[in-house]
Design a protein around this nucleic acid. Sequence first.
DNA 1: TTTTGAAACACTAACCGTTAGTGCTACGGT
DNA 2: ACCGTAGCACTAACGGTTAGTGTTTCAAAA
Lengths: 193, 193
Amino acid sequence: MPTGRRERKKAATRQKIADAALRLFLERGYEAVGIREVAAEADVAVTTLFSHFASKEALVFEQDEDFEHRLTQAVTDRAPHEPLLPALRREIHALVRHCTADGAAPIWQMIEASPALREYEESMRLRHAESLAAAIAADPERSQTTTACRTIARFVIDAYSLAREAADPEAAVDEIFRMIEAAWEVAAPARRA
Amino acid sequence: MPTGRRERKKAATRQKIADAALRLFLERGYEAVGIREVAAEADVAVTTLFSHFASKEALVFEQDEDFEHRLTQAVTDRAPHEPLLPALRREIHALVRHCTADGAAPIWQMIEASPALREYEESMRLRHAESLAAAIAADPERSQTTTACRTIARFVIDAYSLAREAADPEAAVDEIFRMIEAAWEVAAPARRA
DNA sequence: TTTTGAAACACTAACCGTTAGTGCTACGGT
DNA sequence: ACCGTAGCACTAACGGTTAGTGTTTCAAAA
């Protein structure tokens, strides 16, 4: 039921903070900008900033949850009887394309320049892999062990991470997914002749 | 030829710090112990502590470099003409067994209880995967692309990470390596009929 | 409508990991 | 015996983060 003014105000404040942060970070570099400056720029108190974002790094990965939802939805919302991996491959393709688009370049450049941000992204990926593993394990067509599901989920996240750094990201996705398909066949003794 | 007293003293100081840290961390919990306490317990200055360890988390993963060397050596020092993956599987088996041994249980329990330590370990694994990828890429018997080498390296590190958390770690290593072998076959079009 | 309670927001002050900046001391190589 | 380096120490600070406390704002129960 909550569609009140309060929620809208809260979302607006959150967005105002994220926008201010990204602007300052891109202007002067992530490490060179302090939390107190971001808060001042967004015209909120430091504690307010931290009630919207768990850490300084979280300011950069603001739409982290979208990423997670898209991955699990690629599994749960795919057409009936469509095999798992092609659906995931399509989604990873889209995500990689999105990240390597021209507009996003400065942001990813900033991330790769900061060890703190790289580390944070790594631990995000762990969470995403766990969510994906849960979605795969809940799939009705599966015939895999828990370990196999978690393994495939990790491999898929690895594909995203590795492809982004490759010279030809799109080709890398395909190359890695060929390997993942082979691994999946071995783990899935059923279905297909 | 550095075998002098200075080196011995330095190593001793380092060990003294690591021991003091581990003792305090296990006694009272990682987060509950401050750097200043560790330094006091080891009877060194805080700056000295940080000249031996890059961060608080590094105190816990003291022998991180051993791990890395063992992995790359498993690739470079294997018997001539021995296939790559069985050698790696053997090494991962040994490492997992080492981590799940009874004596190490409290340490890993502490690590899993601390988000900071988990995050640190994740970024360590990235480094290890890169080293391993370099070793694999340098292998004379290879016929793989750079992407394939990096991919397999990640998968191997994933195997270590996933197996440790599985109910039956040793069986999990075998299960995951069956999947990795399949992925490797696809990536290696040469050798074998 | 009025009351009520939760939640957003603010401010101060601190905690904690980490890093200059500086200098002393001890050791290995020449 | 001397010199240069590197280990070690101390003080002070910086920057992210949180506790404590209080105020305003709004949604829903009464």
